[in-house]
Design a protein around this nucleic acid. Structure first.
Lengths: 315, 315
DNA sequence: ATTAATTACGTAACTGATTACACAAATATA
DNA sequence: TATATTTGTGTAATCAGTTACGTAATTAAT
């Protein structure tokens, strides 16, 4: 069969087809019991047969349809003499719906059908290993917790993250290192003197002082960078800085990979703590630092105007 | 939740809602992967990405849609530059569809999405006890074998059969006994002398000779009858005759209940075989007799013009 | 007490499917 | 070979839902 081959991408289509098939049979079943009810009326009808007098939106809420849908169904049912409308005296907007005598008669007549259908379907489902009714319930519950979209998105970034490699700095990445950083700095702030020094001469300013630079490659293209500075050992052993991820590669967790590479390196070199400076405007970055265990500190002097938060990670 | 309460009668509605929810997310997923494909195009697209050049109806057949649906989808996809049409040279009616270069590019691009969606859904389904995908497959298989409609119908007659009771003849059933029989006789044949004798004076003609009459009651109304005659012990111990079920109560298996009551009675009285006369035009009756074990015999004389088949059941 | 926001509902337009129908091309039949 | 039937396709109308939008009534806020 086609749909077993095509895969889960067509789950929607498949569900729709099954629903159409079931509804088609439902039509004949109503005829069989001589019940003047369209299958699509049933949720509304059932809702009304429970209690008295409900407003259009209350019904819509309950059965999970849009209110125009209920509005249309109700007007059809009224025309068929199954329900009647009456204005709410206390609230002129509300249109209260209730079953007519005829409707209640149908509610009575439908009981046998209701029993038979339930029984027939249960009998069928008992023959299966995977109970469709329960499967729907479970699946709806899962979607409630996390939408299909989010699940796929996570799957996507998981797969793409695997294509990311973190490598040590090399002269050929100089341009990328500079541009990746300048991009975000310019977006939120302006390039400062300390920036230019580090970005124009990374070898001299960072590496030769005993620091490190990490580059994130995605399909062999540099899409992220970060640096571990050793300029200011008064505060900490290392300073984490120049963290940049290209907007096109954001959401893949590349920042985390870069930071982890830096932390691993610092630990390897016997560092006891890592310091960093940032700005609270960079929400995802701050969140990442917190997740990694960085704690807010204050009182250190900084060459950066944009710095409004300082953090330290104890290793 | 409403749909757990409402019961299986609303299975169709519930499936539709789930399908809508899934399709809604699918739309966003296609966007996420930057694939210019509407979810509804996917079955057609997938079908075309497998082989080359298919006609509209061939695609419709394969994916289980109606051909106008495919026709519309294809024209949308052609407008989007994903497919192209070309007339079949050998058969001027056929409109052969194939992917364009752009379409093939999308087919390539979609592969990652395809993998991620499959993986995400499988991951979700693994958390469930009842796997929705497999449940659909199993349920579709069951419907293939016997439609929902037939299943419900069987359930209905099972329940209704329980409301049927078989009772012994009483004078108050005389009118019903006569009318039920005259109805089917008149429909297919004409009333004969032997009929009138038995139907006008059942006590004298049947019971007083050692025969029996059984009446089927449905909601305390007589809806069926049959007789066990002892007039002609030359052929068999008993003759099964005057089997009648009201058209309004047909399909409930009342004939079977009546015949079984008669056979039980005959057995109880030590009979070795039961004889009957009928006509092959009465297909359901003949089928019933065969099911009960009656075998065709011939050569016996009969007072009935309409008799064209004679049968005997060995007890 | 006005004004603004929210709520209830209906109408209109759209969506993704269907069935019904029309028509031409191909195939079967007399 | 002429005619009838079948097949492939497209168009139109319908169906069961949706979203978008307008309007009136109620409630909240200034």
């Amino acid at each position: 069969m086609f749909y077993t081959k095509i895969g889960k991408l067509a789950l929607g289509s498949r569900l729709r087809m099954l629903s159409e098939r079931v509804t088609e049979d439902a039509k004949n079943i109503y005829d069989l019991y001589d019940v003047e009810l369209k299958p699509k009326w049933f949720p509304v009808f059932y809702s009304l047969s429970q209690n008295q007098e409900k407003s259009i939106t209350a019904i819509a809420e309950e059965i999970g349809h849009s209110h125009p849908s209920v509005s249309k169904i109700v007007s059809e049912m009224c025309k068929a003499g199954i329900t009647k409308e009456k204005k709410d005296k206390k609230d002129g907007r509300r249109n209260l719906i209730e079953l007519t005598k005829k409707g209640m008669l149908i509610a009575h007549k439908i009981e046998d059908q209701y029993k038979d259908v339930n029984h027939a379907i249960e009998l069928a489902l008992d023959q299966t290993q995977h109970n469709l009714w329960k499967a729907i319930e479970e699946f709806e519950f899962l979607l409630e917790q996390k939408s299909l979209f989010r699940r796929v998105k996570e799957e996507k970034s998981k797969r793409e993250r695997e294509k990311v490699t973190i490598v040590a700095y090399d002269a050929k990445y100089h341009k990328a290192f500079k541009e990746l950083n300048e991009e975000w700095i310019r977006t939120y702030f302006k390039i400062e003197v300390a920036d230019s020094m580090a970005l124009d001469n990374p070898k001299e300013y960072i590496l030769d002082n005993g620091g490190h630079i990490f580059i994130a490659l995605y399909n062999n293209e540099p899409v992220g960078a970060c640096a571990l500075l050793k300029n200011n050992t008064i505060i900490s052993d290392f300073e984490l800085a120049k963290m940049a991820v290209s907007p096109s590669a954001q959401g893949l967790g590349i920042g985390l990979l870069l930071a982890n590479a830096a932390i691993d390196k610092a630990r390897l070199e016997g560092a006891k703590e890592i310091y960093l400076e940032s700005n609270t405007v960079l929400v995802p970055a701050i969140k990442l630092y917190q997740k990694l265990g960085f704690q807010k500190v204050s009182g250190f002097s900084t060459p950066y105007e944009r710095c409004n938060i300082q953090m330290i990670l104890k290793l």
